[in-house]
Design a protein around this nucleic acid. Structure first.
Length: 280
DNA sequence: TACTAACCTGTACG
DNA sequence: ACGTACAGGTTAG
């Protein structure tokens, strides 16, 4: 079992998995679906405005997971540089929309757009004598006008967001159900959605749908694989096609093991930090 | 099937 | 001030 004291909040929040967090006077405040989370950075006490969930995945056997991950030397180094980095268990709908918004964008833009979406379409609540806007419901985004969505800075993704929200709102896309499905089946479902490709599907599955074998391959991860895994996991060609993505993913699972998603998170964090890339 | 251009926004740089 | 480069994944051709 993970002890909360082993979690490094700063590393965890600044690792590209969440966007709606801000630090104010020793406290981290974050939006997760229909609630606000507040975490004391020093003793990691969690206060929440809504239902409690295991947001920090404390029920994971992190000792066992880390032991498995450390079989790989590069990951072992990445772990030593980021002790306490953890995967989070996010609200599925927020995660689904967030990573659709993330496509072909960067962390600063994603954060800005998601904040605007919350402000325009989310419920306003007071928590800790501060004002917050919860993540919009699928219904509110499904009904949103194009103009309003564009005002949030979505650009051509406005169409993606609206259609994706509609699919959830009318029940055709059942995110809860995807949690119970296999990796392959859940992925097939997500890929139906306009605006969701391989990378975004893997992010949604890893961060909110209990698929620890998901290994999102973005430009950074491709860079990492070429740099450290040239011999074990060679990538043919310059770009990554659908077919290559799938065959590579299978090889990744057999190399990194069933918790490959955790490996990905450590590697991603390490490499972006090495290039001094900005987080939240 | 495989490759490539187009897509929108915000920021940084000259 | 004004253009140009760049960060990013998915879709459509």
């Amino acid at each position: 079992m993970a002890s909360k004291s082993t979690i490094n909040l700063d590393s965890t929040i600044n690792s590209g998995q969440v966007f709606l967090w801000k630090k104010e006077g020793g406290f981290w405040y974050g939006i997760d679906g229909d609630r606000v989370l507040c975490i004391d950075s020093t003793n990691l006490k969690v206060k929440s405005s809504g239902v409690k969930v295991d947001y920090f995945r404390e029920s994971d056997d992190i000792g066992k997971i880390l032991k498995s991950l450390k079989k790989d030397e590069v990951v072992k180094t990445a772990i030593s540089q980021n002790e306490g980095l953890r995967l989070l268990r996010q609200d599925p709908f927020q995660c689904y929309i967030s990573f659709i918004v993330s496509s072909n964008s960067n962390i600063q833009n994603i954060k800005s757009t998601l904040n605007k979406l919350c402000k325009k379409f989310g419920e306003r609540i007071e928590f800790d004598k501060k004002e917050f806007f919860l993540f919009p419901t699928s219904a509110s985004l499904a009904e949103a006008s194009n103009v309003e969505l564009l005002e949030c800075g979505l650009g051509y993704r406005a169409d993606f967001v609206k259609k994706a929200a509609k699919e959830v709102d009318n029940g055709i896309m059942d995110l809860k159900l995807l949690k119970k499905m296999s990796y392959d089946d859940a992925k097939k479902e997500l890929l139906r959605i306009f605006g969701i490709g391989n990378k975004v599907a893997d992010c949604i599955m890893l961060f909110s749908l209990e698929k620890l074998e998901a290994f999102p391959l973005d430009t950074w991860m491709l860079k990492i694989l070429r740099k450290y895994y040239e011999d074990v996991l060679p990538i043919e060609g310059k770009s990554i096609t659908e077919k290559r993505y799938n065959t590579l993913h299978e090889k990744i699972i057999s190399h990194f093991g069933p918790y490959a998603g955790y490996s990905q998170q450590f590697l991603f964090k390490m490499e972006r930090d090495a290039f001094h890339k900005k987080w939240l």
